[in-house]
Amino acid sequence: MSTAAYTVRDSATMLRRNLLHIRRYPSLSIMLVAQPILFLVLFVYVFGGTLGAGLPGLPGEAGGSDRGDYLVFLTPGILFMTVASVALGTAISTATDMTTGIIARFRTMDIARVSVLTGHVLGAVIRTGFAVTIVTGFAFLLGFRSDAGPLRWLGAIGLLVLIAFSLTWLTVGLGLAADSVETASNTPLFLVILPILSSGFVPTDAMPAGLRQFAQHQPVTPMIDSLRALVTGAPTGSDLWLAIGWCALIALLGYLWSRRLFLRVPAT
């Protein structure tokens, strides 16, 4: 028996199952996309005028920023929030799935067991793709413009996929570790808070000392900075490598943790 071939086949089967779930339960997807859009509208129209005036001027532009500049500044942070929002949904759907009887059936079958989780992760990455597309479209509707060429957009898409992949392995673990669906919907909330405490909404230089240090060194900041550099055409510098490194680390730890949680034979 070729284990690797069966793992791929079982993962594809489980992915199909998860895509059907996403299609059959559209209200969750709508809720997950609505949240970042709400943040986008709220921040651009309520705070955007004032926050824009406080921006030090975007790279490659002269100073004197306004609401429109703030939209450009904010959009990468909102894109990260979209990815985080879908990842949060994955914690909920994983925890919900674990309460259903079919998971017990999968455990009694001779299949690549981790494929149950791989199906969730790949399904979530595809769902993220749709969500990010909708939110990006919405940002353009509000007046977001980008000078970046197709290669840089491709880079941004690649980075978003990587972020989605790593955050999802983490939230699958949170979903498995949760003792109830309610817990699973609460524990990943830090993913929504972290971008606020990063360079996503205001430049970290504007923050007081202690918070600034946290914001500058937490993993979300290089991810958002890289996204911003890619879509505005600015140099990415070392941030991109830092972002990729963080993603790889989170994905690996999330995968190992989730795997261990799912494969353990319950003692009780």
Partner: peptide
């Protein structure tokens, strides 16, 4: 076939 339904209700 366990005591509790082991089917996928969304499918």
């Amino acid at each position: 076939t366990g005591q509790f339904s082991a089917i996928d209700e969304l499918l």
